[in-house]
Amino acid sequence: MTKQLGFLHNSEKCVGCQGCEMACKNEYQTDAAPRWRQVFQLREEDYSLPTRMFFSMACNHCANPECLRVCPVKAYTKREDGIVVHDHDRCIGCRLCLMACPYDRPQFNPAQKKVEKCNLCYQRIDKGEKPACVAACIPEALQLVEINEALDQRMGVLKTLPGLPSPDITQPAIRFIGPKQGKQIRRD
């Protein structure tokens, strides 16, 4: 593998609008139930002040993809650029990857009885375009990045956020910029 593509999510800018989720659905016209990408609200108890902070997560295209390891049919492959691609045609719907992924990102499609997930819009990337979610993010909170040493050394770039599984399990290709709290003059 020559590089590892991944996402950088900025919780300071994310407004939780779910535009990324819907852009993904618009691009692939997926059924309502499988959510390749999902916006999560951070828990209030994890921050000192009441928050309304979010992060957005799809497949993390992990360096150690558990889905790929456990899949009995080789439906998962990892490309040279680090993208973990799920081959929908090969999938037999054993759902073992659902058990193995700490982020619940492979999603079972009950209608097709197969698993599906984010393939990082590799076909768009191969054409030099951004993934649909990144292209659609109005506040530019979601970016496509190369995960490397330089990124991890950037100020404010975090490997995980409170409420997320330890990145040690699968080494997900996602980084975060954590939320910042403004000053609040509240009546309570």
Partner: peptide
């Protein structure tokens, strides 16, 4: 009330 915009602003002032 503390709206999603308030959460991202430098200051939030709650008004009756």
């Amino acid at each position: 009330y503390f709206s999603a915009t308030a959460a991202r602003s430098s200051h939030f002032i709650q008004v009756r």
